[in-house]
């Protein structure tokens, strides 16, 4: 399928374009203007809602998504929703799934969701445990590549050379160290769970298809959605979708699917662009384009993109592993 969403032209309409969409995350919440996470969550949960006929229970980790959507006495969720802690959402979801099994209600599906801080860092142990037991939960990570709720600090998902509040560049330091960070989708795949996918809010059709597919698979599933953050990344709020698409087009955010530990497909990039086109509009990378910075810095990220192109075979499509 195309990397460029065609809206409703020539294909199945998206859930989001349907007037009767479930609106799992309703308006009136406190998300920032242009929030990628709010968009990602609505698209994902709506798709799961529509696929299951509304038979979903959602567990949320602490973070932006939880704080902006459910501040008592207001609540933007129209689905059953449970928030416990920052680091335990996968385990709580395991418990919810176990309760459903105990009651013989297997048709109800469980989703756990959280940001990259909750997923990559503080909740990593619980997530790995959930994968290890192959618990019947779809875990969705909204990846905005830093701790946005607390004011943009570095997480394990922060890309190399990005500026965050805890990786502030100066004359001798160019932001988050090039040798740091981890590849959680691959870590998830290494657990051998039935389904792993990456998605982007720049490609809603693809995102919805992956969620709709994942929600009915039995066992542990992991979907990671790239959700740009205007505040944390430093770009105008109207640019969220464009930034998300640029990340995919330059190869820094490869969209792929894995099953039982094997890569089974990826979304090809039709017209690859240099990473600079993606980096330049964002203030978190502005220091890479200063006067005294060597071109090498951007080269580090270009190498990562090139590596992704090859590793995930983004230049062509493979149907079978």
């Amino acid at each position: 399928m195309s990397n460029f969403p065609l809206g409703n032209i020539g294909g199945t309409p998206t859930v989001q374009s349907d007037f009767a969409r479930p609106n799992s995350l309703t308006g009136g919440h406190r998300g920032c203007q242009g929030c990628g996470e709010a968009l990602g969550a609505r698209c994902a949960i709506d798709a799961a809602h529509q696929t299951t006929g509304g038979k979903i229970l959602v567990v949320n980790a602490t973070g932006c998504l939880e704080v902006f959507s459910c501040c008592f006495p207001e609540n933007s969720w129209s689905v059953p929703w449970l928030h416990s802690l920052f680091g335990n959402a996968p385990a709580v979801a395991t418990g919810v799934a176990a309760a459903l099994r105990s009651r013989g209600q297997d048709s109800i599906r469980v989703i756990a969701q959280g940001g990259d801080g909750a997923t990559y860092d503080i909740g990593m142990g619980c997530l790995s445990g959930m994968f290890d037991r192959n618990d019947d939960v779809l875990y969705i990570c909204y990846d905005n590549q830093a701790y946005m709720n607390t004011g943009v600090q570095r997480s394990g998902a922060t890309p190399p050379l990005a500026r965050t509040a805890t990786t502030l560049p100066n004359k001798s330091y160019l932001g988050s160290d090039p040798q740091t960070g981890k590849n959680l989708p691959e870590i998830a795949m290494a657990h051998g769970i039935p389904y792993v996918a990456t998605a982007s809010i720049g490609n809603i059709r693809d995102l919805e298809q992956k969620v709709s597919r994942a929600i009915n698979i039995r066992g542990s599933r992991y979907i990671q959605i790239h959700v740009p953050c205007p505040l944390g990344w430093g770009y105008p709020t109207a640019e969220t979708i464009r930034i998300a698409r640029l990340a995919v087009q330059c190869g820094l955010y490869p969209l792929f699917e894995g099953e039982y530990g094997k890569l089974v497909g990826s979304t090809p990039v039709e017209e690859p662009i240099p990473v600079e086109s993606y980096l330049r509009p964002q203030r978190r990378f502005a220091h890479l384009f200063g006067k005294n910075v060597s071109a090498n810095a951007v080269g580090v990220l270009q190498n990562i993109a090139n590596g992704n192109m090859e590793k995930y075979r983004l230049n062509w499509e493979i149907l079978d592993a």
């Binding site: 416990s84 385990a91 709580v92 395991t94 418990g95 176990a98 309760a99 142990g125 445990g129």
Partner: peptide
């Protein structure tokens, strides 16, 4: 489970699910 944090968290989830 893989830790005590998970032990009580699983119990929290299942109890919240009734």
């Amino acid at each position: 489970v893989e830790s005590e944090m998970a032990a009580l968290s699983v119990a929290i989830g299942s109890q919240a699910a009734g």
